[in-house]
């Protein structure tokens, strides 16, 4: 092996060694930074509370597994439930009783009471949940379970 080839060979070995060394440090760090997946409690339905305590023209946000869900009681008594996080940038939405619309204060996005995005920046409708009343208790369940 000529002197030059030997030098090249050593350069490659050294370079590869240094790269492997860096990788062996960076890999565990980058893995460490991402938190482990916590198994979702696989919630398919939750009880919200007695129907009589839920006033007409009001709303509340409840936890559905790890996700917030907004449940709305319209003036006419109808119950509706949607994912409470705006499809634009993830803020929690609120129910506007006067106009019977769902509003996101962060960037002024509006949805109708079918969850459809009707004005402002939201790109998609809100995910719907199924609401039913069983023996006077409001129960919401995710749509894919129905």
């Amino acid at each position: 092996m000529s002197k030059q080839n030997r030098k090249k060979f050593l350069d490659i070995i050294l370079g590869a060694g240094a790269t492997a060394w860096f990788a062996s440090i960076l890999y565990p760090i980058s893995k460490y930074l991402i938190p482990p997946d916590i198994a979702d409690a696989n919630v398919t339905s939750i009880e919200v509370g007695p129907e009589i305590e839920f006033k007409r023209g009001s709303s509340k946000i409840v936890r559905f597994g790890r996700k917030p869900v907004i449940i709305i009681r319209r003036k006419n008594g109808d119950l509706k439930a949607f994912a409470a996080t705006c499809t634009h940038l993830d803020c929690n939405v609120q129910f506007k009783n006067e106009t019977e619309q769902i509003w996101c204060a962060c960037h002024n996005g509006f949805y109708d009471l079918e969850g459809k995005n009707i004005s402002g920046p939201p790109p998609r409708p809100l995910a719907k949940y199924i609401v039913r009343v069983a023996r006077g208790i409001i129960v919401i369940s995710s749509e894919d379970m129905a």
């Binding site: 946000i61 409840v62 917030p68 907004i70 609120q94 204060a105 960037h107």
Partner: peptide, 20 residues
């Protein structure tokens, strides 16, 4: 409160305002 609606008049720090 993770279960509260975003309040009206919500805004970021002023130096993010133009992007907001």
């Amino acid at each position: 409160d993770p279960l509260a609606s975003a309040p009206a008049g919500i805004r970021p720090e002023w130096y993010f305002m133009f992007m907001f």
